[in-house]
Design a protein around this nucleic acid. Sequence first.
DNA 1: ATATATCTACCTATCAATAGATAGGGAATC
DNA 2: GATTCCCTATCTATTGATAGGTAGATATAT
Lengths: 187, 187
Amino acid sequence: MPKTEKTLSDTANRILDVAEKMARQGGYYAFSFRDIAAEIGIKSASIHYHFPTKEDLGEALVGRYTDQFLGALGRLDESTPSELLVQYVAAYRQALIEQDLMCLCGMFGAEIARLPDPVANRTREFFERNLVWLETVFRAAGTPNPETRAADMIARMEGAMILARSMHDMDLFERITADLPAEVLRD
Amino acid sequence: MPKTEKTLSDTANRILDVAEKMARQGGYYAFSFRDIAAEIGIKSASIHYHFPTKEDLGEALVGRYTDQFLGALGRLDESTPSELLVQYVAAYRQALIEQDLMCLCGMFGAEIARLPDPVANRTREFFERNLVWLETVFRAAGTPNPETRAADMIARMEGAMILARSMHDMDLFERITADLPAEVLRD
DNA sequence: ATATATCTACCTATCAATAGATAGGGAATC
DNA sequence: GATTCCCTATCTATTGATAGGTAGATATAT
């Protein structure tokens, strides 16, 4: 049985699953050890075995989310810039529409002034890696100001999620992002 | 002494000031009656005199913020669409750069799934009123798809705040919004 | 092969701190 | 004398965290 990936115990992953869902609904202060434990059928003390402190849990949360998110994006050498941007939007759409959740790092980014430093740093890393990925795409497309385009792209995704969720109107996200890849690549 | 506006006691306003700052740093669960009371030099029980429940406080918070925010925008009949959009961006810039705080409703919008209903409704109203204001501007400018432009505009502002704060780089906001009014009005 | 030790993954029980909220009192103001 | 505005005192619930125990698996030593 090959287990090449960084093995995280089954329980640890279930803890992260539940914590992630709660965090993506209400933020860092919206998930508690007891709530998580209750939902997966263990005791809150047992969570401390896997994640000694809430800070540790938060850090693991953002780390796993970032890896999964960027892993879901297309390979930069296998698709056109246009295809890659379509996939980028699709990653956010899946988080918003299918999962009915906010982006974890959009949430934590808003709360960043009150997050423990390690969690805040991981959140910054999420955006940093997204910026790098997008800049590469825009450079490959020969778009001017790739850094600013990348930042604008992220801003629109995170903001569109917030707005659509606030208005209970997911179509707002669809309309904002409808011809975004085409628009952002021209000129 | 003319006080035509809905009079709120001095203490009530100081409570809202402190609560707003805390909420705009860490969200709805990041301000507590005790913290607020300690900062303005009264007891936590006294806050309940002005705002019976936290829900009430949250509602008042969003209501005041929305009125102030929209009140700071230019009159729709006194400026050009371009000038109005510049003012709109400036309103967010002031919140982000001068106050060094997140937009209250961007924050609450992210957390909306875990907010008390009355607070969530007020948050939705903030965005609704912003959408209406922006749509009017885009219609006056003869821009196609004014509803989608309005939504995109809000998304970019809220997202740009989150990204700039997460990256500790306020220039990201400046660059994203630099020629936004011009770009969004052409074609 | 058997006995011993260690490790894993939970448990019970408990802690101090903090949360929002309430009852009832008192001084000042109108 | 009623209203306004704050107080003390207290309540219950919840927070993250810790100490210490245990059953079962695994590893090591004899």
